[in-house]
Design a protein around this nucleic acid. Structure first.
Lengths: 180, 180
DNA sequence: CGACTACGTTAGTGATGACTAACATCTCGT
DNA sequence: ACGAGATGTTAGTCATCACTAACGTAGTCG
């Protein structure tokens, strides 16, 4: 699945063949059908895995934080860690939902929506006067900011990237409610 | 080309057939070969068009601005307008470079790099103490933020989206150099 | 009129790719 | 030891798709 994620991120779902994925892990082609019922199922499992891990982390982190300020910091760290350590998964996660067939598609959308709502809830506690739609748009914008790591890969070492992204995202969120 | 951009954005380059593109504009399949030498050429032309338009706008705007502060505002407006009005083009632009064959690929990369350097130059004038690598990473992060519009489509009307993105991006950039 | 060009059509063709079938092999528990 | 299940392999099959060929039909200009 890791190999598949890397290939899907690089060339897109339809640009990768079963043979490619098998080859990347040292087996050849149809061996994969012993583990996945098909190419679609592989993608579904990938996205379900990512979505549920993200949501689980978010829930865990928010419930164990004393207040919204700390929750937001923790949410930022979750997403930043994911974006830096698993750039391929992040890339596939927000590009390939359209290629997932219908039963799984709905479930993935649901998990993604719940993850976003986790953010929006925390932000709403911090800024009760801000309408939810605005907070949702801001959340998506912050995701875009944080998920830019695949594009700036190699520009900066991870140890510098991490606080940079944190500071930028934090500032962007504050600006969202306070247009200066 | 607009139809192709929409389809590529939705399903990925390899997920769209020549027949699909033709069908979307009311002709059927091979008619497209009267206008493009092939599917690759269509994609190349799309990306070349976008990259050069972006770079041209950036150069025009920067040279006609009195100072870096105004230049940055103008650059933000260029990118925001593009992201809001042409979400499909923006999506294709930062996803499908890997599917462009080699002669055109290099040229597109060059234009993209020049566009980024336009931003980095302006930012360097505003923050001379900040290393260029950091500014480059921040620029990519801001692009990610602004290009999030396809994800939050429909959340917010464009008239609200525009100043929101502007404020968030502005704040993120300031935070980049001033980690608070 | 009559050639030429621009632009469309339908009917192949050859390659690629997802998936299946039939056939090894390796590791077990008994 | 041995049969069973898990996990490979190679050799098809069938659909899809980029692209070509051959042909039709305006408009345009001599």
């Amino acid at each position: 699945m890791e190999a598949a994620a890397r290939l899907f991120a690089a060339r897109g779902f339809h640009g990768v063949s079963i043979e490619d994925i098998g080859g990347a892990v040292g087996v050849s082609g149809p061996a994969l059908y012993r583990h996945f019922s098909g190419k679609d199922a592989l993608l579904s499992e990938l996205l379900l895995d990512v979505s549920s891990r993200l949501r689980e982390s978010a829930v865990a982190v928010v419930t164990s934080c004393p207040g919204p300020r700390e929750s937001l910091d923790a949410l930022l760290n979750v997403q930043i860690t994911f974006a830096i350590e698993q750039p391929a998964l992040i890339t596939v996660h927000d590009r390939e939902l359209g290629n997932v067939p219908e039963p799984a598609r709905r479930q993935i959308r649901r998990l993604q929506r719940l993850y976003v709502e986790e953010w929006v809830t925390v932000l709403a506690e911090l800024h009760p006067e801000c309408p939810a739609a605005r907070l949702r748009a801001a959340t998506h914008a912050v995701f875009g900011l944080l998920n830019s790591t695949p594009h700036s890969a190699g520009e900066l070492p991870a140890q510098e990237m991490r606080p940079l992204l944190h500071a930028m995202a934090r500032a962007a969120i504050d600006a969202c409610v306070n247009p200066h």
